[in-house]
C-alpha cells in the first residue's frame, strides 16, 4: 500500500476519532458535575442559580425552551419547506429549479448571528406590536426566525429525496391517466417519504443546535416558560451566554459542560435516527 493511501486511511479514521473525541472531551469536563450531583433534579428542577450559595444547577427551563422553539420552527418551517421542495423537484422548469436551488444554498450561508441581529432589531419589535407584548424577545420570535433558517436544509434534502424517485414511477402514473397533481401526491411524495422524514429530522437537529439566534432573540429568562410568548433561554443559549464568564473548573463551569453533554446527546439521537433512515435507504438501493 503506497504511503499516500495510508495517509488518506488515517484521515478517514480521523472522522470516527473526532466523533468519539467530541463526546469524550465534553464528557471529561462534565464528569465532575455528574459525580457530585447524583439525582435527577438536574433535569426536572427549575432552579439555575449559579452564583447563590449554595448554587443550584437545574435545566428543565432550558430544555423546555429548546423544545418549544424547535417545535415552532418545525411546525412553521416544514410545510413551507416541503411544498417548496415539491415545486423545485416537480413543478418548475429545470433551469429555474437549478437557479433557485443555488439561491437556497446561498441563504444557508447567512450567518446565524446575522439572523439573530435581524431578529433583535426587526422581528422582535414587530412581534411585540402585533401580539401586544411587553417585549418581543420571546420564544415565538426566535422560533419564527429559526423556521426561516432551517428552510435551506429542509428544502435541499427533501428536493434531493424527491428527485431520487425513479422517473418510471411518474411515467407509469401518467400513462394511467393521472394528472400531475395526482402523480405528485400519490406516487412521488409517498415514494420519497423516507428521505423527507430524514430531511425533517436533520432540520430539527439544526434547530435544536442553533445558538446565536436564540441567544439574541429568545429573551433569556432562566425559568420554565409558561407559553411561547414569554422570554426564554434554550440550552444552547445558556451555554454560550455563561461559559465565557464561568470561572474555569468552577461548579458552574462543569454544570455548563453537563448541559452541553445533554444537548449533544439530544442532537445525536435525532441525527442518528436520520442517519439510519439515510444509510438504510442507501443499503436498500
Amino acid at each position: 500500500m503506497p504511503y499516500q493511501q495510508k495517509l488518506v486511511t488515517v484521515a478517514g479514521y480521523t472522522v470516527l476519532l473526532l466523533t468519539a473525541a467530541i463526546f469524550l472531551f465534553v464528557a471529561a469536563q462534565a464528569w465532575p458535575f455528574f459525580r457530585d450531583q447524583v439525582d435527577l433534579s438536574f433535569f426536572t428542577g427549575d432552579r439555575w442559580l449559579p452564583v447563590s450559595s449554595p448554587p443550584s444547577f437545574q435545566i428543565r427551563g432550558f430544555l423546555v425552551s429548546s423544545f418549544m422553539i424547535t417545535s415552532m420552527a418545525i411546525v412553521v418551517g416544514c410545510p413551507i419547506g416541503i411544498l417548496s421542495a415539491v415545486c423545485l423537484a416537480e413543478l418548475l422548469p429545470r433551469q429555474a429549479s437549478i437557479l433557485l436551488r443555488s439561491v437556497f444554498e446561498m441563504t444557508a450561508g447567512i450567518p446565524s448571528v446575522v439572523w439573530g441581529f435581524l431578529g433583535l432589531t426587526v422581528i422582535a419589535p414587530f412581534v411585540a406590536r402585533v401580539f401586544n407584548l411587553n417585549t418581543g424577545l420571546t420564544g415565538f420570535s426566535a422560533g419564527l426566525v429559526l423556521s426561516v433558517m432551517i428552510l435551506p436544509t429542509l428544502v435541499s434534502l427533501a428536493d434531493e429525496a424527491l428527485r431520487a424517485v425513479p422517473r418510471e414511477y411518474a411515467e407509469a402514473s401518467y400513462a394511467l391517466g393521472a394528472t400531475r397533481w395526482q402523480t405528485i401526491w400519490r406516487v412521488i411524495v409517498p415514494a420519497a417519504r423516507g428521505g423527507i422524514v430524514a430531511a425533517v429530522l436533520l432540520a430539527m437537529g439544526r434547530a435544536i443546535g442553533e445558538t446565536m439566534t436564540v441567544l439574541m432573540v429568545a429573551g433569556g429568562r432562566l425559568t420554565t416558560p409558561g407559553s411561547i410568548f414569554e422570554p426564554m433561554r434554550p440550552i444552547t443559549a445558556l451555554i454560550a451566554a455563561e461559559v465565557t464568564n464561568a470561572a474555569r473548573h468552577s461548579e458552574q463551569y462543569h454544570a455548563l459542560f453537563a448541559a452541553g453533554l445533554v444537548l449533544f446527546s439530544i442532537t445525536l439521537a435525532v441525527n442518528a435516527i436520520a442517519a439510519a433512515v439515510i444509510v438504510g435507504k442507501k443499503a436498500e438501493a
Binding site: T19, A21, L202, G205, A240, G260, F264, T267, I278
Partner: peptide
C-alpha cells in the same frame, strides 16, 4: 460506521464544538 459518524458530526451544534474545542 464512518458514514453514520459523518452524518452525526455534521449535525453537532456549533456550541458543542465550542465546548469540545475549549476542553481539548
Amino acid at each position: 460506521l464512518l458514514e453514520v459518524a459523518l452524518i452525526n458530526l455534521a449535525g453537532v451544534p456549533s456550541v458543542v464544538f465550542g465546548l469540545f474545542g475549549y476542553s481539548l
